[in-house]
Structure formats: C-alpha cells, structure tokens
Simulated scan of single mutants.
Amino acid sequence: VNTNGSVLLSEIVGTIKLKVFLSGMPELRLGLNDRMLFELTGRGKNKSVELEDVKFHQCVRLSRFDNDRTISFIPPDGDFELMSYRLNTQGEPLIWIESVIEKFSHSRVEIMVKAKGQFKKQSVANGVEIAVPVPSDADSPKFKTSVGSAKYMPEKNVVVWSIKSFPGGKEFLMRAHFGLPSVEKEEVEGRPPIAVRFPMPQFPLIAGRVRYMKIIEKSGDPDTPPWALPSQRGHYQLRTQ
C-alpha cells in the first residue's frame, strides 16, 4: 500500500495440505467445485479468476489431470502438500491499511497506522505482520499499539507491527514516534510502500472448495477404514469439512 492508500500489489498464495493414515496404497481422487476447475484450466469466463503457478505433488497423475481435470493420486504417509497456487487479487485486500504522518518539528515525526479486517467475524488472521518503512536516519523509536507489539528493525529501515490474532471486522492502531536529523530528506527520498503478510488457514479465498475426497480401495480389500462411508463395493467416500 502506498502513501495515498492505493494497493500496489495484492496476491494470495494458497495450498491444499493432507495428513494421511491409510493402510496399503489406495488411490485418492480429489473433487473441486466447477469454478475452481475452470480456473485451473484457464478456460473460465471473464468473471473467473485464473490461478497462476499451480504446482502438484509428485504423487499426482498429471496425465489424468490434463485429460479430464481429475486430481488422482496415491498419497505418501503423513503430512504433505498436495498442491499450491498463486492468485492475483484485484479487489480490496482482506486487511485494509491506512497511514498518516504528522510532523511536529524539523526533527520529530509520528507515524499512525490503522489496520482493519475486511472479512467475516467468524474468521481470524493469525500471525499478522505489518512492515512500515521509516527513513534510514530515524532514531529514538517509541511505540504505542492497541493490540500486539511493534519492533524497530534498523537494518531493514522498517517497523514491524506484529498481531498474533486479528478477528474479522476489528480495527487496530499503531503509533510510532521517531527523531530525525532532517525531515526534508524523507520528502526527497519518498516513502516505500507498507507491506502486510498473514496466513488464514481453512479460509476459502477463491470460492474454491473441496467437494469430495474419494478413496478407491482394491476390489476385495478387507481393510475397510472405520471412518469411510461405503457407497459401493471397493469404493469409499470421505466426508470433508
């Protein structure tokens, strides 16, 4: 976000992660909603948002996906990342940032930063980091935050405002006071943009949802998982949330 409040860059890096505890080597098939499939193929309508840098785990059968867009794979045991993607967003970011600079004299500056969660109250952003650039000759930092903590990192010329938990709809403030040998120097150099990073697990940012996870057991396999719902012989469907 630049000094005028305009968003210079907004992107989402998303992943689908699995934790597998299955006996044998069953085949799994992941079903996504139609819109996300269109996005993955790049053949969506104008209103669809295309994913970029889509990467699958090596266990995914890429030839099957290329043919009919089915995500089919034999998973490894334990935790692994099934797929990842990047999405450039054109709308307003989930955490909106505003900043104001007040100059009290030729050697003292106060920076006020306001952050507001523009997502539903039921969701929470964890580990939010807001990096606010400051002049290279800043000194004597003092901070006041309505939540979280602020830390001056002179080696990077930024103040990092850390918020452990940021619920949707909430608004928080941070004020930073600095001494400056010359305020005019900052006006000549200009101010770099403010950067915001945060994870939001299990949040459907792209309206892409998992419709089903099917587990295909070999015919006659006696090891029927106790959590599976039988739909037909040798074919089980796992409920997802």
Rank of each mutant, 00 (worst) to 15 (best):
Q237S: 10
I194N: 03
M174E: 00
P133D: 06
F203R: 13
V158W: 10
W96V: 09
P204S: 01
V158Q: 13
G179F: 04
E129I: 09
L205E: 01
P204Y: 01
R43I: 08
L173P: 04
R239C: 03
I12T: 10
S231R: 13
S219F: 09
S63M: 12
G78R: 07
P167E: 05
H57V: 00
V1K: 00
F166G: 08
E184T: 14
S165L: 11
L94T: 07
E189K: 02
P193F: 05
E27V: 11
I74G: 01
V160N: 09
V128Q: 02
M25G: 02
K164H: 01
C59P: 00
V13I: 11
E98L: 11
S84K: 12
E217A: 10
R233A: 15
V113Y: 10
H106T: 08
V13E: 14
R86T: 12
F172Q: 13
K144E: 11
S6L: 06
G220M: 05
E50S: 12
V49C: 09
E102S: 13
F65R: 04
E155G: 00
L9G: 10
V128A: 02
I97K: 03
Q118A: 04
T145L: 12
L37F: 08
L173T: 07
S136I: 12
E110N: 14
V60C: 13
Y212M: 09
G208L: 08
L40T: 08
